[in-house]
Design a protein around this nucleic acid. Structure first.
Lengths: 120, 120
DNA sequence: TGGGGACATGACGATATCCACATGTCCTGA
DNA sequence: TCAGGACATGTGGATATCGTCATGTCCCCA
């Protein structure tokens, strides 16, 4: 019969839906270069604390990122994908963002500021 | 300052938004193997005529597909991407779908039925 | 030229998304 | 134990999306 019927695009559509937003896409662009905590993303993207947390919640619910608690703050990083389609898509995206040298420098600068100054 | 500020993800987020839906993703999966007319997609995906047209309108507005009129009916195919990010993402997607041999057979069967029987 | 097929679109109710404001939770250091 | 910083979440209103039904447009053919 129809093979399209057996093609499960649910995981992929979930991923796409989560990435169908400028802010969340920029978050992923930054996270392509390393893990960052909420306040880093907040500052880098010029968002309110509330909004930053919300968007991360959406990305987490879609399985795009995963949190890691470290003392008082929470670091987010890209989560490994189980589904083959989402895996290849996210890899392609990270690869595209990974080529942006300027982004890498942004992330490094953010992480350097982490130590003594924390997230202030 | 921040390089993320200069990274324009608007075209990509538009693409992702359009693909953040199971039905539209399945349409793209089929169109990865060749152009199809509305009634083909309608039958293959088990959608109403109205809904099929709507979803294609969304994909068209996002620049994912483009229509080609041929007499009484309209064929849709994947549209070439101008933006680098959307180009690489869509290429990765088509590549992933392109590996699904069963899908290719589906499309061929649909196109074979086209000639005499039209879309009936 | 009139009818029917293929597709698009207006209207609309149901549902989901988005963002800000305020408040709540958890951890840390004094 | 208390204050404050880092995050999360309840609430609510504006806005957008989704799918259906009905209708409109365009094209082909008898």
């Amino acid at each position: 019969m129809s093979a399209i019927a057996s093609l499960d695009v649910r995981p992929l559509s979930r991923l796409m839906k989560a990435l169908g937003d400028e802010t969340r896409l920029r978050m992923v662009a930054l996270l392509s270069h390393g893990e960052l905590c909420v306040c880093h993303l907040e500052k880098a993207l010029g968002l309110t604390q509330s909004n930053t947390s919300r968007q991360l919640t959406v990305l987490k619910a879609a399985g795009v990122v995963e949190p890691r608690r470290e003392g008082s703050w929470v670091f987010y990083r890209l989560a490994p994908q189980l589904d083959e389609l989402t895996k290849s898509q996210l890899r392609a995206l990270v690869n595209a963002f990974g080529k942006r040298e300027v982004l890498r420098r942004d992330v490094e600068r953010l992480l350097r500021a982490k130590g003594p100054a924390s997230c202030k």
